[in-house]
Design a protein around this nucleic acid. Structure first.
Lengths: 206, 206
DNA sequence: AATCATTTAAACCATTTGGTTAAACTATAT
DNA sequence: ATATAGTTTAACCAAATGGTTTAAATGATT
């Protein structure tokens, strides 16, 4: 019954392997055999731990989404300075993206091809949007930033951070075919650029 | 030999059907039978026109990418005002996105799962990046905008426009679950927001 | 009428794939 | 030592899927 007592943490190995394969190939492109190979076990054991591809996938998908949502939520404090928020948000978000560059494309693709899956997790994991909205509105009221619908601001932030990762292979080809180090350097500069860009865009007119 | 002489333009029907299915489901998720059904023909005829799934897919994929690239190129003029460029770019790009909301996710997912495919088209279709860079640098030299690496500017623009479409199902759930019209309204407002945002961010300090 | 391209229907094939089963082996815990 | 959980091997199954084939229609062209 209790698989936690094992000497080898096979379950963890399987989850890591599944994560790698699912994120690279998506649900349709992933093969159970490939996950087993990646985990260094055989297919029978894979089904012994996770009955079906679907169950295994849901596990991976929900965790991936929960990780991202948590990073975002951690940056949100209902009271506080927008610019502090932006700095911590961009810093945390770009850090997790650097470590997991393929996660956004994975998530976006799966929710686009199976939007009905959203319902499964949207009760378990929630973005603290109300908190973000309150913070934004407070800063606007205090004239620390120009007036703007909070929804646009958070989408602006997410888009500016995430887009280079979603479009990475295209970027590397279009911009940096000659100098391959350019893409990495670009992503390195990006943090400061984004922070500066938002400060400039949001500052009240003088 | 020449299929163009047919009374019924079956080839066109097939291409449209294939486009619909591939964009919705991706290469791995798409089924030849489904494409045949969508086109109102049978599977044999599908292979009569396009020998294999791969050939059909490449056709669709390249066209989808060429359409996007062309819109972007049309906005680029090597001499001219950045703010004019931004307005026309955002206008054109958001218009084509509104008509083809699933194309970006389709493209990004395919290039992420098969990056080697980039080589196939990158010689046929090119973004006019050098033109864009010259225009940006001129505007900076003329002190019409603040100094900034042109690569960041174009990525900023693309990200701000495209992100809401890539993340649309998530947006609708997270922001607009209660008021479903909210998402459409959000996308409607977005154009003015983006243009204003960039003007504010790029204007030289006074 | 005869030729040629287009289209359908239906059966068929080889391969892949998710999943199962059964038997045996290994390490661990009691 | 004996039971138990974990693990392997290998064969197996059913369904799905890309693709082929054949024979028969349909339609247009000449």
């Amino acid at each position: 019954m209790d698989k936690g007592k094992t000497k080898h943490n096979t379950e963890q190995q399987i989850l890591e392997a599944a994560r790698t394969v699912f994120i690279r190939k998506g649900l349709d492109g992933a093969r159970m055999q490939e996950i087993a190979d990646e985990a260094g076990i055989n297919k029978a054991l894979l089904h012994y731990y996770f009955r079906s591809k679907e169950k295994l996938f849901n596990h991976i998908f929900e965790n991936a989404l929960a990780d991202i949502f948590e990073i975002i939520n951690q940056s949100i404090h209902e009271e506080g300075d927008v610019y502090v928020f932006i700095e911590t948000f961009v810093d945390h978000y770009l850090t997790i993206l650097k470590k997991n560059p393929f996660i956004p494309n994975f998530i976006f693709n799966e929710i686009n091809s199976h939007p009905e899956r959203i319902g499964l997790f949207s009760r378990k994991i929630k973005l603290n949007i109300p908190g973000f909205i309150r913070m934004t509105e407070q800063n606007i009221a205090q004239k620390k930033m120009i007036s703007m619908p909070p929804e646009h601001l958070i989408i602006d932030l997410l888009g500016m951070c995430v887009f280079p990762y979603v479009a990475k292979p295209l970027l590397e080809d279009v911009f940096f075919r000659d100098h391959p180090a350019g893409a990495d350097n670009f992503l390195y500069e990006r943090k400061q650029h984004i922070i500066y860009f938002f400060k400039k865009a949001l500052q009240p007119k003088q």
